[in-house]
Design a protein around this nucleic acid. Structure first.
Lengths: 194, 194
DNA sequence: CGCCAGCTAGAGCGATCTATCTAGATTATG
DNA sequence: CATAATCTAGATAGATCGCTCTAGCTGGCG
């Protein structure tokens, strides 16, 4: 057996949510995709769909946070390069999945921002964590902490927006173009080398 | 009488879609919000929900395109100022509406990008039109056409992403911060004054 | 073995969804 | 005024929604 039922449910949810949104995905569909029995759903998530949704958001949020850290650790000391890598990781994911694998949070976030406080909160926490991760790297590259926090928000916003455009247009150009401009902006903010 | 039934349906749809998404909004709710009889819905939009959705997207897309042009015409010759105004228009809208009035397209766009080709196409056309409008203004401020097209994509991406973050966090800071950085980026791209 | 958790299995409830259909009201036009 | 086109009105179908419920299965432990 691969993973336990609970995890399979979380990952099936996350995948379906990012492709078709929260309201657009039925619980039946989730159990089918996760190969999990219907009864298990309400055993593991007694709070129902909202409970499952919040945990699925947190789950893939944490998953991507790890991915962030891995990418940042790879191109060590070269933050700008890492940020660029991130945009291109998304380019690959979109192409490989046939424009399905965008941001696992944004689709849900927009849907629920005005309709479910617990879900909105879960999404907000994920974005905040991502933001903090980016800010930390910018700061350790020599940018003042306050400025690093601002730039992190900016980088994340540009990233999320570029995914929206690329996914909608079925074209990776928005991601690639935005990556270039953001990279240039960041380079200009770094303290002079040597 | 204010506006005709068809228009009321389109605008009620657009408003509800951007708050709760496409799948999250029922046709019953739309007719109620638009003060329109149920029978009229399938009279004006025989293609059903998808037909209504596509027209609603196009309708508010065109509406915002006009708003773009009005804002750009106002701060004449000062493109950067206009772009900044745009971000702050969204700041006001979010605050005034209690975080409901974000982008009328993005929510639907993410939901349907992988599930409905006609709807995705409608969203893509709106983004393309907005992009072209921004590019035109940047070009007439002296930026080379190719570069203006790239920067337009970048501006729109940053704008859309900042809305996602602000709406999710219930905080206008992402929009304000992103506006500043984008404005600075654009200023650096403009040909030297005088 | 007996026992008790943890988990699986799915029938079924009321509500709601999109969509269809027919009939009546309204408006424009000859 | 008569007639046709347009629009309104709502009952209803059939499917699906999230969710509850009970019963049975499974495995660890005394």
């Amino acid at each position: 057996m691969a993973k336990d039922t609970r995890t399979r449910l979380l990952e099936a949810s996350a995948q379906l949510f990012r492709e078709q949104g929260y309201s657009g995905t039925g619980l039946k569909q989730i159990t089918a995709a996760g190969g999990a029995p219907w009864g298990s759903l309400y055993h593991f998530f007694p709070g129902g769909k909202e409970h499952l949704g919040a945990e699925a958001v947190a789950h893939s949020g944490a998953r991507y946070l790890k991915l962030f850290d891995r990418v940042f650790a790879q191109a060590d000391a070269e933050v700008v390069r890492s940020v660029r890598d991130f945009f291109h990781l998304s380019v690959d994911a979109l192409e490989r999945s046939g424009w399905g694998d965008g941001c696992p949070i944004a689709t849900v976030a927009l849907e629920v921002a005005s309709t479910s406080e617990p879900l909105r909160h879960a999404c907000a926490e994920v974005f905040a964590a991502w933001e903090a991760s980016i800010a930390r790297r910018l700061a350790s590259a020599g940018i003042a902490e306050d400025r690093a926090a601002e730039l992190a928000v900016y980088v994340l916003a540009a990233f999320e927006g570029a995914i929206v455009l690329s996914r909608t247009a079925h074209d990776t150009r928005p991601l690639r173009v935005t990556a270039d401009v953001v990279a240039a902006t960041l380079t200009a903010e770094l303290p002079a080398q040597r």
